[in-house]
Write a protein that binds this DNA or RNA. Structure first.
Lengths: 368, 368
DNA sequence: TTGACTATATTAACCGATTAATATAATTTG
DNA sequence: CAAATTATATTAATCGGTTAATATAGTCAA
């Protein structure tokens, strides 16, 4: 193999004593009007192997008008905990000789808008969107709708944000319900839900649908149990990084003085922040207080105590999304896929004990 | 813009009343023998904008023999905590109209070998390798060497694994030194280093160079202070995920019964495992025991207490690696870049207090 | 034996850009 | 004023595949 002179299809054809077309078919296995005998195929492949030849995807792409590239756009935070989703996607893509281009959106809709441009300029054959940043003007909705009209397959992950775009997600309402149920079964009755109230208003439909649905699941479970749901708010305005500990302090004060013995939290990171603040206040988890998170993030297994949480089948979600892209490419019909949340019971929850309740009620009386 | 009929360069040329070549030059701004007047350029660009045209990278790639794709291969765990590196890389790539393909290696050298194939089949224009899995047979070394002979730019990140391949990394020896120094300055004298002994033998040169160098920096600082370095081993054989808590138990027992008041740990995850075990044993961090990690992983800011650690300038490391790729492409000489580690002092370390020392010695006597 | 059909192959147009070679007019230089 | 140079453009070959249209030989049925 000489430097700088790559073997091409013509070279293989020459050495095998066949035409370019035969080599192409031998490699792709495609058969339209044109076929190739098993014998010829083997000979071609053998010579190719000897010369270290593999078909140049650049030529193929141009000719087939397919880049063999799929783009994944999504909020940065998703990539931190959802590597398994990416792996799920890639497993499916690899079988089809596709590659994945990833675009990490920041907090602004502009990012996604720009990334949409990048991906389109690259002529990606499909788009997987993992949640969108706040987009009050709906500009991206129009872009995505245009795309679909042009025939580009689009699938969204985790949350239903773009209407009419097929979605692969976990049943978040059910997650909220199951988390609460778990605490109810442990005998808790004073259960709060810690979340960010801005996520719960309907002004930006879809953007924080997961938060809203988790809260609704919580409320449903509480009501069914004849209990009063109570949502406690934290302030996410000054959020930096993933550490909620500081932001969650007032919420935890409310938790402590409100006579609660357990809480479900918007996500694992919030739950960990809550546990940290509880520890700082001398409240022992789970003995004095049970905490549940959502997402089964990496952290949740190694925090102290390890967090009880509701996970998602991340790698399946990714794989399914990728498969849907190909189905859309083949002009097949696809429908939404909603997965059941996966309860992961660790050590941040335990059965209520009566003395705890009494103690916290006393406290309430003193401070109230 | 009609469905399925993409505007191409010829269409723009026609409407602008110029040749294909003129359009090409107007867009690329390249100028060899051929130029285009400012007036023509503007007209072409305006028409292109009106028709929503952007040059098809598939055609361009084929013609220029450049895929405009760079591959990043690396151990899965790197991607969990080093998203900033990827962002650093992408910032630089984007300016050059390049995209990044990521390949997450598992624990086996086979993965990297396979990913090398994938990337090469894709005709990537450059390769960034973020650490390699154990490769006793050195098969990948040969592959990488071959690649470089063929003129493909290769850069490695974090650790020097492939000889002769330019590296961008942090000075790990110095990190070990600084971590230990920090503890010495706080008055600690009984300082251990918790690591995995398999990382320290020289059988697999480079593969765990970071662990080795951190340990060496620790030893150097201890010796300079006239203190006895002591490396304490944990068992990584049964490692699953990122949670070291269980694996680190025997090491923590040694720590407690050996009269130590502080420890540096191979990485943040190990440090967090150590803190969890200390907490389980009723040892308060940092009051009774100080702990230092390495990497400044996401987790280290939200664990309890937040971890003192030595970070790396991840995004700069990424950006530098990407820039080096382009320099290699332009046949320029490049040399290694070694960054200074970044101390991040949080709450897992504090000044030694005398009573702690006495207590731990008592304990030693009791249990010993 | 003839026509239809099948299996296997080739030829040549095409995908959408880049760029070396070439051309022309305008401007500068000696 | 002629020659050289410069600025601005065009023509056509090329990158490395795919595939519709076409060709040929062999098989099978009637």
């Amino acid at each position: 193999m000489k430097f700088g002179k790559e073997v091409d299809m013509a070279e293989i054809a020459r050495q095998a004593g066949v035409s370019n077309a035969a080599v192409s078919v031998a490699f792709s296995g495609r058969k339209g009007k044109i076929g190739v005998s098993e014998e010829t195929r083997k000979r071609v492949l053998k010579i190719a192997a000897k010369l270290g030849y593999s078909p140049n995807p650049l030529g193929r792409s141009l000719s087939m008008k397919k880049s063999h590239l799929i783009a994944l756009l999504g909020r940065e935070s998703y990539f931190v905990f959802a590597l398994d989703t990416i792996k799920g996607i890639e497993t499916v893509l690899r079988d089809r000789d596709y590659s994945l281009l990833t675009y990490y959106d920041g907090s602004w809709a502009d990012d996604q808008s720009r990334h949409l441009d990048f991906a389109l300029d690259r002529r990606v054959d499909g788009l997987i969107i993992a949640g969108a940043p706040e987009a009050p003007d709906g500009a991206n909705h129009k872009r995505v709708a245009d795309l679909r009209k042009k025939g580009v397959p689009v699938v969204q992950l985790y949350r239903r944000i773009y209407p009419d775009v097929p979605v692969v997600m976990t049943d978040e309402d059910r997650a909220g319900y199951l988390a609460t149920q778990h605490l109810l079964e442990l005998g808790h009755t004073r259960i709060a839900h810690v979340t960010h109230s801005a996520y719960l208003d309907r002004e930006l439909p879809g953007t924080h649908a997961d938060a809203l649905q988790r809260a609704q699941g919580y409320e449903r479970a509480m009501c069914e149990a004849g209990l009063m749901p109570q949502v406690i708010d934290y302030d996410a305005q000054t959020m930096v990084g993933l550490d909620y500990t500081r932001l969650v302090k007032p919420a935890v004060d409310q938790l402590r003085h409100g006579g609660f013995t357990a809480a479900t939290c918007f996500c694992d990171y919030v739950a960990i922040g809550v546990m940290n603040q509880l520890a700082a206040a001398g409240v022992r988890v789970p003995k004095d207080f049970s905490v549940v998170g959502y997402d089964n993030a990496n952290m949740s297994e190694m925090c102290n105590p390890p967090l009880t949480t509701l996970g998602q089948p991340l790698s399946e979600i990714g794989a399914t999304a990728a498969r849907m892209i190909f189905e859309l490419m083949d002009k097949k019909e696809v429908s939404d896929t909603i997965y059941e949340p996966i309860p992961v019971v660790r050590e941040s929850t335990c059965a209520m004990n009566v003395s705890t309740l009494r103690k916290s009620q006393v406290k309430t009386r003193i401070t109230g």
